[in-house]
Amino acid sequence: MISTKDITFQYPKGELFHMPALFCTAGNVILITGNSGRGKTTYLHILAGLLRPKTGSIEIDSTDIVTLSERKNDSFRGKNIGIVFQKPHFIASLTILENLEMTSWLATGKKNSAIAKKLLCQLGLEDHASKLPSQLSVGQQQRVSIARALINEPKVLLADEPTSSLDDKNTETVIELLTTLSKEYKAALIIVTHDSRIKEKFHNQITMI
């Protein structure tokens, strides 16, 4: 569960953004839409604790992440927030499975190979576990990103334009996986997008103007 209140944000010498309040329970989906330059990605980074808002609070399972120190914030994010980025990024020198294990190790101190393998199976990527990320197609890479975002069973799953670099078929698959898996892993799913292919599918939308 994630809820926000009265969030404002200002880049150094930039304009002041008023972020809309947001409330999302485990297993549900909220879409944040709006045109470019309205601060969608900024809002997502604030939700992820990557940027510190000027005012307001963000409660994730009764922890206000705005008040956490940077070190605690990093560790809280690792355990409770999964992020899928616009473009899939990986540690290039590690295999797919090792990338997942690394994510798990950074958050929990344990290499959770069992969940990593299970997720890869669910995403239909079990044959690619020992490949390097660069050997996969963009669609496959984005699916691995979903696995990575979910491996620590986070409370919140954030997706930043997850489909902008994908074709229709892959978009369909990725959206399908995001919704079903976030339900299965009981995560609140927040998708930032301007992709009309996604907008059609969801009713809970917040538009940033």
Binding site: L50, D74, R77, G78, H89, L106
Partner: peptide, 12 residues
Amino acid sequence: EFALLRVSGAGR
């Protein structure tokens, strides 16, 4: 990669 590590919970 560094950003990713940070996102995954690694400190500075």
